[in-house]
Computed example of a mutant assay.
Amino acid sequence: MAHESRIPLSRLDPNAPLVLDTRALSRQPGSSREQVLRVPAPEDFGIEMVGVPAGAAIELDLRFEAVLEGVLVTGTARVPLKGECARCLDPIASTFEADFQELFVYSDTRSGGHADDDELRLEDDLIDLEPVLRDAVVLALPLSPLCRDDCPGLCPECGVRLADAEPDHGHAVADPRWEALRGLAGGGPSSDGGAPGGTSSGG
Rank of each mutant, 00 (worst) to 15 (best):
F100V: 06
P142V: 09
S111F: 09
R110N: 10
D125F: 09
D128W: 02
E123I: 03
D108F: 09
D128P: 10
R110C: 06
Y106N: 07
D108I: 06
G113D: 07
D118F: 02
A140K: 15
D125W: 11
V137W: 10
E119D: 13
E102T: 12
D125T: 06
F100P: 01
A140L: 13
F100C: 00
F104A: 02
G113M: 05
V105R: 00
D125A: 12
D99A: 14
G112T: 05
H114Q: 15
A136W: 00
E130L: 08
D125M: 11
D108P: 04
A140F: 12
A136L: 06
Q101V: 10
A140Q: 15
R134D: 09
D128H: 08
P142H: 08
A115I: 00
G113P: 11
V132H: 03
G113C: 06
L126H: 02
D125I: 03
D118L: 04
L139N: 12
E102A: 05
R121N: 05
D99I: 01
E119N: 05
L139S: 14
V137N: 12
I127D: 01
A136R: 04
V137H: 09
D125S: 11
S111N: 15
D117A: 13
E102S: 09
P131T: 04
H114S: 14
D135V: 10
L139A: 13
V105H: 04
S107D: 13
D117V: 02
R110H: 11
R134F: 06
G112F: 07
A136G: 05
V132K: 03
V138K: 10
L126E: 05
V137C: 09
D128Y: 03
F104E: 04
S111Y: 02
